[in-house]
Structures are given as C-alpha cells and as structure tokens.
Computed example of a mutant assay.
Amino acid sequence: MSELAPDDIDDRRRSIGARRNPETEQAILEAAEAIVAEEGIAGFSIEAVAKRARAGKPTIYKWWPGKTALLLDVYHRHKPASVHTDTGSVEGDIFAFLTGVFAHWGDTGAGQVFRFVIAEAQRDETAAASLADYSAERRIQSGAIFQRGIVRGELAEDIDVGLCADMLAGFIWQRLLTGRIERDPVQLRQVARQMVRGLLASPSGGEVGA
C-alpha cells in the first residue's frame, strides 16, 4: 500500500474536521491540555475532559477513539514548527529535528506525555492503533528530510526514505524511553553526520564526505 502524501493527510484532516463542531472541538482540546498541565497524566481521563469542557463523552469518543488519541492531538498542537525546518542540507535538517524534538520533550513536559502514549500502546489495542496512525503520519514528515536530500543530489536516489525516517524515530524514541534527551549540540551534530555519511572509512582512509 502506498503512503499518503502530506497534502493527502491535510485533506483527510480537513475532511474529518468538517464533521466536527469547531467550538466544541476547541473546548475539548483546551480542557485536555489544561488537565495534563495541572494534574499530569495521572489525572487525565475522558470523564475529566468531558466535565471540564462541558461536552458529552459520546462526542469525545466519536472524534477520538480513546484518551491516547486525544493526548496525541494535544501533544501535536504544541510541537514546534522548527522541528521540520528546511536548512538546505540533510545533516542540518536532522540536527534541527533532533534539537527541536528534544527541547519540546524536555521543556514542556511533552516527553512524559509521549512516554505514556508509548506505554499505553503496549497494553491497549486502541492506544496502539492511535500511536500507529500518528507514527505513520510523522514517518512521512520525517521522510521528507531525506527526500529533499535526494532532490538536492546529496543522497543516493535508491535510498528508502521511510526506512531513514524509521532510523531517526528509533533513535529519538530510544533516548526518550531511557531518559537520555540531552541536547549537547556536538553530540547531536555527530548523530546527524553519522546518519548521513555512514560508518565506513573512505578508500583513502579519511572521513567519508569530509
């Protein structure tokens, strides 16, 4: 099955959003956001959101299959645009992505939300489906980093951009789940360099791509 292009995702979201009452949707998202900020994950539930937003639980479940899906929407609302900055090079884009994601996770509490989402997905099928849908969309966005590299002639035309995106996601998820979201720019630039240039020595013995 072919992946959705970013424009297709936006069209799908607009189609879904068209069936929602914008004011009610906004109230639900703001209530969910406030509960996470004030009470943390432990105090978050569909019941609490419904009460605070003055919305019916059936309405929330109609638009979000469970609290994980709602949490992911809250999480994504505040993800900085700089995460997907086009810097003009693949290494620069990866460095900007790593720096932006780790700052978002560390400075806003979003990291704890996403850790909870991952944990819920291990035990609940609905949560797993919500995370899978979210990850599929993010895979396309991250894959654009490498697609731009192909267009610019930086990367080989036969690389699998989806696999590259998986490798990038694997790195940040592993760091999140092991409590290692340090933002040392020297280290993050090295990660970007190794992802792009590889680990093999050049024939002359120097650094590949130097």
Results as ranks from 00 to 15, higher is better:
residue 50 A to F: 04
residue 51 K to F: 02
residue 52 R to E: 11
residue 52 R to F: 01
residue 52 R to P: 09
residue 53 A to Y: 02
residue 53 A to P: 06
residue 54 R to G: 14
residue 54 R to C: 14
residue 54 R to I: 07
residue 55 A to L: 10
residue 59 T to A: 11
residue 61 Y to T: 07
residue 63 W to A: 07
residue 66 G to R: 09
residue 68 T to G: 00
residue 71 L to T: 14
residue 73 D to V: 12
residue 73 D to A: 12
residue 74 V to L: 08
residue 76 H to C: 03
residue 77 R to Q: 15
residue 78 H to A: 14
residue 79 K to Q: 10
residue 79 K to P: 00
residue 82 S to M: 05
residue 82 S to A: 09
residue 82 S to E: 06
residue 83 V to E: 01
residue 85 T to V: 07
residue 86 D to Q: 08
residue 87 T to P: 03
residue 89 S to N: 08
residue 90 V to T: 15
residue 90 V to G: 12
residue 91 E to Q: 14
residue 91 E to A: 10
residue 91 E to T: 12
residue 91 E to D: 06
residue 93 D to W: 01
residue 96 A to T: 11
residue 103 A to D: 08
residue 105 W to V: 13
residue 105 W to K: 13
residue 109 G to D: 04
residue 110 A to F: 07
residue 114 F to Q: 11
residue 117 V to F: 01
residue 119 A to L: 06
residue 121 A to Y: 03
residue 121 A to K: 01
residue 124 D to C: 04
residue 124 D to E: 11
residue 125 E to Q: 06
residue 125 E to C: 04
residue 127 A to L: 08
residue 129 A to G: 06
residue 130 S to K: 01
residue 134 Y to E: 03
residue 137 E to D: 15
residue 138 R to N: 09
residue 140 I to E: 10
residue 142 S to M: 08
residue 144 A to E: 09
residue 144 A to Y: 03
residue 146 F to Q: 12
residue 147 Q to L: 11
residue 150 I to Q: 13
residue 154 E to R: 10
residue 157 E to M: 10
residue 157 E to V: 14
residue 159 I to D: 09
residue 159 I to P: 10
residue 160 D to M: 11
residue 160 D to R: 15
residue 163 L to Q: 15
residue 164 C to F: 08
residue 166 D to T: 12
residue 172 I to Y: 14
residue 172 I to K: 05
residue 173 W to C: 05
residue 174 Q to E: 12
residue 174 Q to C: 05
residue 176 L to D: 06
residue 177 L to Q: 05
residue 180 R to H: 04
residue 181 I to M: 04
residue 181 I to K: 02
residue 183 R to K: 08
